[in-house]
Nucleic acid binder design. Structure first.
Lengths: 348, 348
DNA sequence: TTGAAAGCGCTAACAA
DNA sequence: TTGTTAGCGCTTTCAA
C-alpha cells in the first residue's frame, strides 16, 4: 500500500500561463509587492491556491544572489551554556556556508540594559537580515528591539525573552514550567521524609531565575506543603559565594533534605554538600548540562539536571530566522524548546 | 565585538580557474566521478581544500532537476506512536514540496519478517533515493536491507534498528538506556518504602521491549536490590489483556509499590490500577506521550512517561536521508534522538 | 500596471 | 581525459 504525500512539481511559469500573466507578475503577487491591479492579484492568487503551488526554495535562493546575514548577540563572559550555543553555531559553519548564510557573533554585556540597547541600535542600521539576541527584559532593550523590527530585520529572542517587545519569535524554554518541574522532582524524590528544602539562585533580578523560583514555590505550596522551604539565598552565579552560603546553611540546619540551585554556581554548591558529607542524603537539583554537571550526575551528588538543549536552541534560532527571512511558515513544533529532565541513565 | 563565522562565497568557476581546469572537471572531482587523471584530481582537491570551498546546495539542487523520492515503511495498525510519526510527515508536506522532496508511505506488516522483507525487496527495484524503515531484526529483513543498500539507495532504520545490517543510519533511542531510566525512576520514586515491583511488556520477542527489560533489570539488580521484582507479564500491547493481567496481579500482591509498563496497553494498566483504588500509592511508569498518557499524567495516575519525540524522529529521518542522498555530512548531534522524561510539569 | 530577458551556481549531456 | 553548453525555476532589472 503506497500513499502519496507530496505532489508533482508546478513552476511559476505554469501558474503564469494558467493565470494569463507573466512570470514577473506572479512573482509580485507571491511576495505581496506593489504595482499589480487588485483584480490581477486576486486572479493570480486563486490560481496559486487552486494548484497548491509551492515555489521552489532552491531556485529562489539561487536567483536572489545575495547571501543572508544573521547576527547573534551573546553575553560576554564564560557562561558555559552560552559558550555551548556558540560552539554549536561554529559546528554548523559548513552547513551555513553551503547555503550562503553568514552568522556573526556580537559579544556584548547583555546584563547592562544601556550597553545592550546600544549594541542593538547599532544593528538596526546594519545590513543584517536577522538578529538573535539573549535579551534582558528592560524598557530600553524593548525599544531597541522594536527599532530593529521596524527596519524590517527579523528578530528572535534567545534563551531569555522580552515578551512585551515586537520580536518575531522566542527560542527558549518556559522558565516557570522549569521551576515547577524542579519543585515536583524535589518533592517526589525526597519521598516520605519530612524536613527542610533549600533554594539558591543567582539573583532574583534575573527574569529567568525569578520565573523558576516562582514555579518552584507554586508547586511546593500546592503539593508539598508539609515541606519547609528555607528563605532564598542569592549566590550571584558564583561558585565561591554559593559554596559559602550553602556551607553555612548546612551547618545551621541539620534537617535539610532537598536543595534546588536555580542558576549557575553548581560546582560550589556541590562542593559544600560533599564537604559536609551530606551529598547522598540531600536531593540536589540544578540546571544545565555541562561537563561538570554530567560528572556530578554520574557520581550521584546531583540527582537531576534540568536543561535546555543548547545545540537545539542554536539551530532553532538559525532556522527560525531563515524561515522568517524567506517568509516561510515556521514548523513550530520543531522549534519549540523542551525542558529536559536529565538523570544518570538518560544522559545524551 | 564582531566575529565572522562564514566566509565570502566562492563558486565552482573560481575553483576551476584557479586549478586551471573546466567547470565539469571540478564537478567530477567534487562527486568522485570517474574519468579524471589522478594528477588532476589531486590538484583540484587541493584547490578546493585551500579555499574551503562549499558548493551552493541550492544551485546543485536546482540544476539536478529530478525530485528526490523517499519511502517510509511503517507498520499497519493503530499504534499511536507510529501514527504520530506519519502525522508529522504530513505536516511537513509544504516544507517537503518546496524542496521538491516526495515522501511516500508504504504500510506493511513489519512484524512478519517475510512480509516485511518482501516489501523491502520491492523497494530495491524502485526509483527511490532513500528508504526509512521500522525494522524487525530478522535475518531475511537484514538481507533485504542490504540488497537495497547495494542498489545505491540510502537506508535508515527508524525507531527499531537492525544493527547487523548495512543500513546507513539509525534514527531512534537507545532502548537499554530507556529501560535503565525507567528502573532508576521507579527505584527513586518509591522512596524508602519496600515492597514489590511489577513489570509488564508486550512481548519479550520484540527487540525494543527486550532491551528495555534488560536495562530495567540491570538497574534494579545493581541499585535497588532491596526491591522485589515480580516475574514479567506479557500483555501483547493490548489494553484488555494488560488490564486483566494487572488486576489479577494486584489482587495477589497487596504490597506492590511500583509498576513499569514496557510497551503499549497503558490504558488497560491504568484502568486496573484505578479500579483497585491503588493508582495513587503505586509508582507507575510507562512509555510514549499520547493524548491518553498525557491525561493520565495530569490526573496523577501515571507518574512518568518515558518517550521519544515522534516529530523529531520523522524530521530527523527525512533530514538524514536527504543528507545521505546529497553526500552531505550529517549533523549527528542534531539527529540523535533523546530519551525524554516527561512528568506533569514539563509536558510539551 | 505589466512583460521580457539576463542571470544566480550548479549538473549533465554531448563534443572534442 | 577534458571542455562546452544548455538549462533548472526563480529574482530582478529595465523597458514598454
Amino acid at each position: 500500500m503506497v500513499e502519496e504525500t507530496a505532489s508533482a512539481a508546478l513552476t511559476l511559469k505554469d501558474i503564469a500561463r494558467e493565470a494569463g500573466v507573466s512570470l514577473a507578475t506572479v512573482d509580485r503577487v507571491l511576495h505581496n509587492r506593489p504595482g499589480v491591479r487588485p483584480d490581477t492579484v486576486r486572479r493570480v492568487q486563486e490560481t496559486i491556491a487552486r494548484n497548491a503551488f509551492q515555489p521552489h526554495v532552491a531556485a529562489a535562493e539561487l536567483a536572489r544572489g545575495r547571501a543572508r546575514r544573521f547576527a547573534f548577540v551573546m553575553p560576554t563572559g564564560a557562561n558555559p551554556f552560552m559558550l555551548q550555543i556558540q560552539a554549536y553555531l561554529g559546528e554548523m559553519s559548513a552547513w551555513l556556508s553551503a547555503r550562503r548564510l553568514a552568522v556573526e557573533m556580537v559579544i556584548t554585556d547583555v546584563f547592562d540594559p544601556s550597553v545592550l540597547a546600544a549594541s542593538l541600535e547599532e544593528l538596526a542600521g546594519s545590513e543584517y537580515d536577522g538578529v538573535a539576541v539573549v535579551a534582558l527584559d528592560h524598557p530600553s532593550v524593548r525599544a531597541a528591539i522594536n527599532d530593529i523590527v521596524d527596519r524590517g530585520i527579523k528578530v528572535v529572542t534567545l534563551v531569555s525573552d522580552v515578551p512585551s517587545s515586537r520580536r518575531h519569535h522566542y527560542v527558549g524554554i518556559d522558565n516557570i514550567a522549569a521551576g515547577r518541574t524542579a519543585g515536583a522532582l524535589v518533592g517526589r524524590l525526597v519521598g516520605q521524609r519530612s524536613g527542610k528544602i533549600a533554594i539558591i539562585a543567582g539573583s532574583q533580578g534575573l527574569r529567568d531565575h525569578a520565573e523558576r523560583i516562582f514555579g518552584f514555590n507554586q508547586v511546593m505550596a500546592s503539593e508539598f506543603s508539609h515541606l519547609d522551604i528555607l528563605p532564598l539565598l542569592e549566590g550571584r552565579d558564583e561558585d565561591d559565594r554559593s559554596q559559602q552560603l550553602i556551607s553555612r546553611l548546612l551547618g545551621k540546619h541539620p534537617d535539610i533534605i532537598g536543595l534546588y540551585n536555580v542558576g549557575a554556581g553548581t560546582q560550589g554548591v556541590a562542593t559544600a554538600l560533599t564537604e559536609a558529607g551530606r551529598d547522598k542524603q540531600i536531593v540536589f537539583i540544578a540546571h544545565d548540562l555541562t561537563a561538570m554537571t554530567r560528572r556530578l550526575l554520574l557520581q550521584g551528588t546531583l540527582d537531576v539536571a534540568i536543561s535546555q538543549n543548547p545545540g537545539h536552541e542554536a539551530r532553532a534560532a538559525v532556522r527560525v530566522l531563515l524561515s522568517l527571512a524567506r517568509n516561510e511558515p515556521i514548523l513550530s513544533e520543531q522549534e519549540k524548546i523542551r525542558i529536559d529532565i536529565l538523570m544518570r541513565d538518560n544522559l545524551p
